[in-house]
Design a protein around this nucleic acid. Structure first.
Lengths: 180, 180
DNA sequence: CAATAGTTTCAATGACGATTGAAAGATTCC
DNA sequence: GGAATCTTTCAATCGTCATTGAAACTATTG
């Protein structure tokens, strides 16, 4: 490997991807491993990753497992080799779907359920006089709930139309907007 | 205040909002303060927040400043009172716009710029023979770049149609999808 | 079945960001 | 101006979460 520009570009991308991950609540190393595998054509083994990213075996193992768990990378086996190799999901659209769906399931579902519970709790007071205070809180929680369900529907729609459809669709609506 | 169900619901919502924030890279306390102000009708002062959330004056001050910085809460003044009070942006849609725009500016713009830089770096090798390896990396980075710009356009569109428009629009497209 | 190769686990450690509280800095009031 | 009230700052501390590395575990090989 003597393609130094490619190496430099790869390193730069990996660093930034790691930083972005960190600020979105994903461990820097996990994001870096993901970036490395995303850019690399051939599958890599644990030792490759340890060397390229200078991390311990334990960390590599843990983070790889988590990435497999998310569905963002796959375990692959090389014929005639005992080692396990890893390969990333390379389709950006697929990645988006996976990440959004997982985060939704793990992190927004709980809050949606909580909101529902809260709404029940508040409206049980409704037998008595509803205080303005309670009514205001109820309305805001309801608005939040609506927001999440609209976003959820929109996401499902995006997944359905897919990347091929989304861009033209967006453009079409933009055009309609401009006319209106 | 004797509306115990409302209090319980509020506390529950705040706790969960804080947890969600934490897993999205926002400090738990900052998210909790935001939730408290979101649910409360009248503006609150620093001492109210310290008491309700059991945090120090320093922490309250810092987190409030950050929230003001994000544009998610406003400083308001009560006539005949020297204290500063805080009020949240109560419109959920507006909140979404603010959060998305800020996160985009702070956290996705840098990666987009990095991708552009990387693409340049790689294509400068293009004078020489482009290795398959470099070509694969280039293609993936380009796909990622496309993804971000599509998402950006979609976001602008959503903001333009607004909440009133989005839900019907989504439904309309869903219907078209079902027919196709 | 023992030896070898590879992977996972987990207690200890480390790094980093958040929080605290007291001191310094503003602002308003008389 | 200076006393009173409120806010911000920041060095020290605390808590949390990721990482380390060695030991335990699993799976292949001859």
């Amino acid at each position: 490997m003597h393609n130094s520009r490619l190496e430099a570009a790869t390193a730069l991308f990996i660093r930034r991807w790691g930083e972005m991950g960190a600020s979105w609540g994903i461990s820097r190393t996990m994001a870096e491993i993901h970036a490395l595998l995303f850019l690399t054509t051939e599958p890599l083994c644990t030792d490759d990753i340890m060397e390229r990213l200078q991390v311990s075996r334990g960390s590599a193992s843990t983070n790889l497992r988590q990435l497999v768990n998310w569905g963002l990378i796959y375990r692959v086996h090389q014929r005639g080799d005992r080692k396990e190799y890893f390969e990333a999901e390379h389709d950006v659209w697929q990645m988006f779907e996976i990440i959004t769906r997982e985060r939704s399931r793990r992190e927004v579902q709980p809050i949606v359920e909580t909101i529902e519970k809260c709404l029940e709790m508040i409206s049980q007071d409704g037998d008595a006089e509803t205080t303005p205070r309670a009514e205001a809180a109820r309305r805001r929680m309801a608005a939040m709930h609506d927001f999440f369900s609209t976003m959820n529907r929109l996401f499902n729609l995006m997944v359905k139309v897919g990347p091929r459809g989304l861009s033209p669709m967006t453009r079409a609506i933009e055009k309609l907007q401009r006319l209106a």
